[in-house]
Each structure stands twice: as C-alpha cells, then as structure tokens.
C-alpha cells in the first residue's frame, strides 16, 4: 500500500475516533452524575457526662467514674439541595438514638459513642447535573443498623471541675459503619477525626462552654450539591443560668449554638452550617453516688445548610458518677 494512502487512512481513523470520543464525552456530560453519599449528621453529641448536648462542661474529677448516656432526636430537612431554580429535600426526616459510655478519672475521660439511625428518608431527584438518591432507613428494614461510631478522649488542662475558666482538649476517631454504598446518608465510608480545644466555666449562676476544632474529613465530593468539601472548622458555644432546685439538684437553661464550615470554601453559604438549640436540663449534684441528668432541647438551623436542619428536637438521659473518695471496700464519700 502506498504510504500516502496509509497516511490518509490513518488521518481519517483519528478523526473518526476523535469525533466518537467527543460525542461520548458530550453524552456523558448530559448524564446526571451521582454524588457519593455521606454522613449527613451534624449533631455531634458531647461525650457522656459532658453536660450540654454538644458542648462539654469539662467537669471530670475524682476517682475512677464514668457515665452512660442515651440521646434521641429528630431533625427535619437536614439535607436540602438547590441549583438556584429547583430544591430537593434529599434527607427530609432523620430520627436517631445515640448511646454513649465514658470512663473518667481525675481530669481525663475516654468514651465511646454509637449512633443508631431509626429513620433516614427523603426524596430522590435531579438537581442541576446531579441525580440524588433518596435514603431509605427504617427500623423495620434495618432493625439493627448502627452508623459511625466515635471513640474519643478529653482532658482538662487548666482549672478544676468548678473553676470559672476551664480549658481542655479533645480528640475523636470516627469509625465508619453503616451502609457501605453510602446511599443512606449515614456514613462517609471513611475514617474521620476531630481535634478540639474545649473551654467551659462557672461564674456565679452562669455556666458556659464552647469549642473550636478541626474535623479531618477525607471526603470531598464537591461540587455535588450539599456534599462535604473536605476538612472543616468546628465551632460552638453555650451558656445559661444554673438554678438550684434543692440541695442536690440543679437546672440549667440556655442556648447552644454550633456549626461548621469547610476550609476550602470558608464560611461560604453552601458549605457552612449554623444551628441553635434552646436546651434545658436537670441534674444531680451529689458526689456520693450515681447522678441522673435529663435533657431536652429544640431549635433549628440559623444557616440551614450543610447538614443543619430546619428544626431539631432532642432529648437525653444520662447517668454519671464522679465518686471523689473511696475506701477500700467501695464505700464512697464526698470530699
């Protein structure tokens, strides 16, 4: 075959392949993309014994003690996405319970939190270039599902359990569990971590707490709407009066405001969420045996994006025990 003929045929082949590739690419661009799915939960409950719902009062003290906590809640529309013209509540209803167990000694605390989704449901559809799948978690079809577990450690580095200013540090490892296909919005499917600076204090009747930290989050599914964009800054504060009910019980009423924003689009509206809860709790104050704490809270998203729901209601039940002195047969006494 003459070389000129071979060259001509080669050029034609390249042109056909290029046209074919461009056509495929164009078809692919027309096909809606499927986001990965992720853990929509932004309510990172405080360590068992931590007092507030999200903030931590850093009151660890005494000999070996600890706490068990059960928190339950419901969030309405925690994940809504929009492309400017259409809106979709991908996760419209989310109900959960969270079990926590902590051991504490002196100013240290170790804990385990296990999240149990009860309902995660919403609406599937297409928003912009993305086709979103509705999650489907219900107690009947998923009778024993547990989602991501959190293992953490906290320490108070400054102040004692009743100081006007207490400073502490905390770290959490989030272990992925739940539906491995991520379509139920109950897990990122990757390990995550949090490192936080914690502060708290009691000044007269006022009690307060807050945190600033980093959520190391490998999942970056941007620009998929509503999806994580990698690691995030965490922030939050809570404060309220501490009212004595009787000799051994107090009530604390106050707001908790907390949120998060992705570092890569810092504080932009689509990647920052801000939520406020008005909380109230009643708790025992004695150190001579297990104490009960009952908590309720309700609120919603001040900036209802990025996992902050339209509204949320939570309840919590906690038994904690910071025995300060023991004799050698287990009898305890307050200092």
């Amino acid at each position: 075959m003459p070389s000129s003929s071979r060259g001509r045929r080669a050029r034609v082949l390249v042109a056909v392949l290029s046209a074919s590739a461009m056509s495929s690419r164009a078809r692919a661009q027309q096909q809606p993309q499927q986001p990965q799915g992720f853990a929509v939960e932004r309510f990172y409950s405080s360590a068992p014994g931590g007092g507030w719902f999200v903030m931590d009062d850093l009151t660890m003290r005494g000999d070996l003690g600890g706490a068990m906590a059960l928190t339950a809640g419901y969030a309405r529309n925690p994940l809504r996405v929009t492309d400017g013209s259409s809106n979709l509540a991908v996760v419209s209803d989310q109900a959960f319970t969270d079990f926590g167990f902590a051991v504490a000694r002196d100013r240290w605390r170790l804990y385990l939190n296990i999240d149990m989704p009860i309902v995660i449901k919403g609406h599937g559809g297409t928003v912009g270039d993305y086709r979103l799948t509705a999650p489907s978690v219900a107690l009947g079809s998923n009778p024993d599902t547990l989602s991501d577990a959190r293992i953490g450690a906290d320490v108070r580095v400054l102040g004692d359990a009743a100081s006007p200013f207490r400073l502490g540090a905390g770290a959490q490892l989030i272990v992925p569990n739940g539906n491995p296909s991520h379509v139920d919005y109950d897990t990122d499917g990757t390990y995550r971590a949090m490192a936080r600076v914690l502060f708290a204090g009691d000044m007269g009747m006022l009690t307060y707490a807050g945190h600033v930290g980093v959520h190391v989050r490998p999942l970056d599914d941007s620009p998929a709407p509503g999806s994580p964009e990698g690691s995030e800054l965490l922030f939050g504060v809570a404060a309220g009066p501490r009212l004595a009910l009787d000799a051994s019980n107090v009530a604390v009423v106050g707001p908790e405001v907390y949120g998060e924003t992705a570092f890569r689009s810092f504080l932009s509206s689509g990647s920052a969420g801000l939520e406020a809860l008005l909380t109230a709790r009643v708790e025992g104050t004695r150190d001579d045996g297990p104490q009960l704490r009952v908590k309720v809270g309700a609120g919603g998203g001040i900036s209802p994006h990025f996992g902050a729901p339209e509204w949320r209601a939570v309840v919590g039940l906690e038994v904690f025990d910071y025995a300060t002195h023991h004799d050698n047969v287990g009898n305890r006494s307050a200092p």
Partner: peptide
C-alpha cells in the same frame, strides 16, 4: 473495679 474499691459488685447501678 471492685477490687480497687471503685465499684460495688454486689449492688450495681451499672456494669460493662
């Protein structure tokens, strides 16, 4: 815990 005097193993409020 009981041996260390930190838990009453004959009348428990919790265990793990």
């Amino acid at each position: 815990l009981s041996h260390e005097g930190l838990h009453d193993i004959h009348d428990e409020s919790w265990n793990a």
